[in-house]
Amino acid sequence: MSTGIQEPQKPKPSATPIDILNNDTAKIYTHIHPILVLSLYAYKFQSIVAEPVPALSESLIWLGILQIAYAAICLPPTGGSAAPVEKKKPGEKKRAAPSKIESGVNGKIIPAFLSLVVSVAPATPLLAGILVLFGAPITTHHAHTLLCAAHISLLTTLPLVYVHGVNGETWREIIALLRPIDEVYGCMIGTVFGAWLGAVPIPLDWDREWQKWPVTIVTGAYIGFAVGKLVGGTVLKGKKIMFD
C-alpha cells in the first residue's frame, strides 16, 4: 500500500488535514480516547458474544457518549479552525467567564450530538446495506446487522460530520479517498478496513462462540479504529491516497 500513498502535489486550501484543538485537554484526551473505546469494547466483549443484540445496543450508547466527548473535546467543529475560541477581547474577559459552560454546551456538545444524529441516521442503513451486499444474512439477523452498522457509523462518520459538516463536495472527496489523511480520516479508513478483515475468521472451523455474526466484524472495526486513528494522526498525516 505504501507506493499508493504520496505527498500531495497541490494541496488545495479546502483539503488540509484536520489538526486537533490546540489545548492541553484535547492533546491528552485524544490519546486516552481510543484506549477508552477499546476498553469499553473489551469490557462488553463477553456479553456481546453471549447476547449480541442487547449488549451491542447498550454499548452503542456508551460509544456514542465517548465519541461525542471526543468530538467536543478534541476536534474543531465544522468551519472552525484549530484554535477558534482563543480570540478574546480584553474587555470581555469577565463576561465570558460565567457562560463558559453554556458556550461549551452550545458550541461543542450540541453540534457533536447533532453530528451523531446526522451521521448515524443515514449511515446506519447504508452500511447495513453494504454489509448485506458483502454477504450478511438477508432474511435473518436484521438487528445484528443494523447494530453492527450503527457501531461502524458511530466510529467512522460521527467525527467526520463534526469536522466537515454535510457539504456534498467534501463528502464526495471523503468517499473517494481524496482527502489528505489525518486522525479523523484515519479512523474511518481503519474502521472500514478492520471490519473488512473481521470477516476472515468467520468460516474457520474452530467452533468458537465469538465466530458468530457480527462479533468479528465489530471487533475488527474497533481495532481498526484505534490503529487507523494512531497511524492517521502520526505516520501518515497529510499524505494522500493515490489509486494509480
Binding site: F134, G135, R172, I175, A176, L178, P203
Partner: peptide, 23 residues
C-alpha cells in the same frame, strides 16, 4: 467456504470501483 469468500472479494472490487469512480 470458497463461494462466500469470492462474494466478499467481488464486492470489495465493486466498492473500490465505486470509490475510484468518485475520484
Amino acid at each position: 467456504w470458497e463461494d462466500e469468500i469470492l462474494l466478499h472479494f467481488l464486492c470489495t472490487f465493486g466498492i473500490l470501483g465505486a470509490l475510484s469512480s468518485f475520484r
